[in-house]
Amino acid sequence: MGSLIFTSIILALIAMLGNGEYFLGSSMLSRPLVMCTLTGLALGNVRQGIIIGASLELAFVGSFSIGASIPPEIISGSVLGTAFAIGQHNSTAVALTLGIPIASLVLIVKNLCFIFILPYFVHKADAYAAQGDGKKMGRMNLLGGFLAVNLPIGLVVGLSYLFGSSAVKALLAVIPAFIIKGLQVATGLLPAFGFAMLMKIMINKNNATFFILGFAIAVYMKVPVTGVAILGACLALILTGYSSFHGKKVVTQTSNDDNAAAKEDIDYEDEEF
């Protein structure tokens, strides 16, 4: 029992570090690849944690917050999914099966916090601003993020592990084999969901060709993803004119246009960041 409580606390802290991404420069700490690795480390099976992390990362590759959308709560899904799977000496499929519903459930909790707790801090900051108290106004930023989002996520993860792991064990024992097999198949299919979400944001009729190009290069030339990324970067530089030849032309009749083009180039370099 003592070690169960200890593990629950560690997992809660891992989850809070994951959400701490938003305190630490939106640095991707909440991604399954990081969360599952740390969970694996805490439970004494780093290797399995990393492998599960990779699979969950692919399943959730399209889940991220752009603009005002809030993605499924991947932190709790990753940490609990991995913890239960490793505790069960079980496969990646188990982590996914548990991780995805957990992520959707905790998203509801997170949204409740967003709706009922966080606005208090937003309005309190307005009041401090009106008094000209910058220090207290800033404190609302720090406290709001911690009390309304970070701490609840830690609590949900810690408590779920404390009370849930034996219940989850019993649940897993009654799942028939063909369902487990089916979920393994689904694990292979799930990345398609993430890629479809990415395409939705990026694709239009001017750039759809490059999706097909990347696919064809990978399939027919067997170039790994990194290679395709390098080719894609070169292509992007060529197509946007960065790598075009802008040297002096021998024919000088349209010297005005040349100067204008050359000037533009200098501007690009200044403005690159």
Binding site: F210, F211, G214, F215, P224, G232, Y268
Partner: peptide, 27 residues
Amino acid sequence: LMDKLSYGASVLGLAVVGAMVATMVTV
């Protein structure tokens, strides 16, 4: 420049997504 930057980024991004579909989705 704004348009050029976002176009170039989408060319690179989509080529990578295409390659990932080929290598990471299993049917």
